[in-house]
Amino acid sequence: MLLDFGNVGMLLLVALVFPLLALGTAFFIRPRPRQHGIEKSLPYECGVDTVGETWVQFRASYFLYALVFVAFDIETVFLYLWAIKFQELGKFAFIEMFIFLNILLVGLGYAWKKGALEWK
C-alpha cells in the first residue's frame, strides 16, 4: 500500500514537470517580436475596447450554490464509508440509510423551499 501511494506521489511530481517541459520547449521555439504595441495585449472582447473594471462584485447566486454544495459534499463523503460496509452491517446499515438520506433530503427540501436553488 505504501508503495502504491509512493507511486502516486512520483506521478504527481512528473505531472508537475511535464507541463513545465512543454512550456520550456515552446519557449525556445516560439517567435519573440522585439516590440509590440499596446493594442496587442489588450483584453480580447470582440474587437471593442474594454470598458470599466473587470474585477467587479459578482452575483450572489453563485455563492448560494457553493454553500449548498459544501453541505452536500461533506454528507456524501460520510455516505461512502457507510456504502462500503453496507453488506456486512445488514439491518443496522439498512435502517441507518433511511435516517442519513432523510437528513440529506430534508436539507435539499429546505434549500429548495428557501429558494437557494433558483437562478435569479
Partner: peptide, 22 residues
C-alpha cells in the same frame, strides 16, 4: 501551437495566469 507567440493580456494577474494551465 508550439511555435505560437506568447501574449499575456495587459493588467493580468501574472502568477495566477501562469500557474492556471499547469
Amino acid at each position: 501551437l508550439m511555435a505560437k507567440e506568447d501574449i499575456m493580456p495587459a493588467g493580468a494577474d501574472k502568477w495566477m495566469w501562469i500557474l492556471a494551465p499547469i
